[in-house]
Design a protein around this nucleic acid. Structure first.
Lengths: 169, 169
DNA sequence: ATGTGTGCAAACGGTTTGCACGTGC
DNA sequence: GCACGTGCAAACCGTTTGCACACAT
């Protein structure tokens, strides 16, 4: 996709920094996994990241990708988000933010809206919980699926585009 | 728990009503599944519902519970909520509402707060999406785990009490 | 009587784990 | 050189599916 290596230069050095701090070696595989996640904006699944990495580093096993992702999440460099479909997805955005998901194709996107940034949740302690964090999930229909929904009947049954890797409802 | 059968009388008749409308037979198993979900407030997993149902109707298979739950969800009588752990949970509350989850034990609860009811989200159409629905997920620590967190070190690593049926982070 | 819900068992997909080898530091 | 990350294969868990029988209507 992007030909400019300097684009992710600072992120990569962040990765190195974190590695030093943890005393963990920064391997080629981990770097590739991080590159994949931080390049994409569509919250890829572990399998999708694996495909991505494979393209650059043939031979990398799925296990390595799973472990690298878990490691990145543990270091706080990557966020694990839970898709309604149940499969884990990964997000380079680690700051608190919200998501929007298309109920037809399952596409999940970050919600970057000033209005949402400004949103202030009531500061409550429901049932004695100590609330540390929150996230809003919007559900709806993406532009592409809005057009598609006009065409066929029984739209709910299909709604399974090749590029949308989401299984069950 | 509750000995009073009249407590769920209206819900049961709702179930019968919906069955008539759908032309679907109301079986003992389905009734038991519905009873289980509507009685509990802790958003049981399919397996937990199965255990519940088994207690009353020994011999009911897990498959039946899965299918009954899917059926109830399709009829709009029960809501399927997605837990951060990835396992599906079920909720008798079908109206739009929010949740709070304990990051230690995984317990998921409905959030019934007037302040949250009154919350108005910005009416935006991010990236051309048509937003139909939304939900807020609060993350935090439940009262029980707040006490427990005082005791051991490395709390994040363990945090896996027997009663909390949540696998991965 | 009839249609469909149920039960069994097997498959499936995503994810995790144990161990020998290779690699980064 | 040493530790740890990697790769392989197999297990695991929640969930789905196909088919014969039983049950609700």
């Amino acid at each position: 996709m992007s030909q400019d290596p300097t684009e992710h230069a600072e992120e990569t050095s962040l990765l190195e920094l974190v590695c030093r701090r943890e005393g963990s070696p920064l391997t080629v595989q981990r770097r590739a996994v991080f590159e994949s996640v931080s390049t994409r904006t569509d919250h890829p699944t572990a399998v999708q990241v694996h495909e991505d990495v494979q393209r650059r580093l043939p031979g990398v096993s799925r296990m390595t990708v799973y472990r690298a992702l878990a490691w990145l999440v543990r270091l706080g460099v990557v966020a694990k988000v839970h898709h309604p479909d149940g499969v884990a997805r990964f997000d380079p955005q680690t700051k608190r933010h919200d998501h929007i998901v298309c109920l037809r194709c399952g596409r999940l996107l970050d919600l970057s809206s000033p209005a949402f940034e400004a949103l202030e949740l009531p500061d409550i302690h429901p049932l004695g919980f100590r609330v540390t964090d929150y996230t809003v999930l919007l559900r709806g229909t993406c532009p592409h699926c809005q057009q598609a929904s006009a065409a066929p009947r029984g739209a709910e049954a299909q709604a399974r585009p090749r590029s949308g890797p989401n299984g069950r409802g």
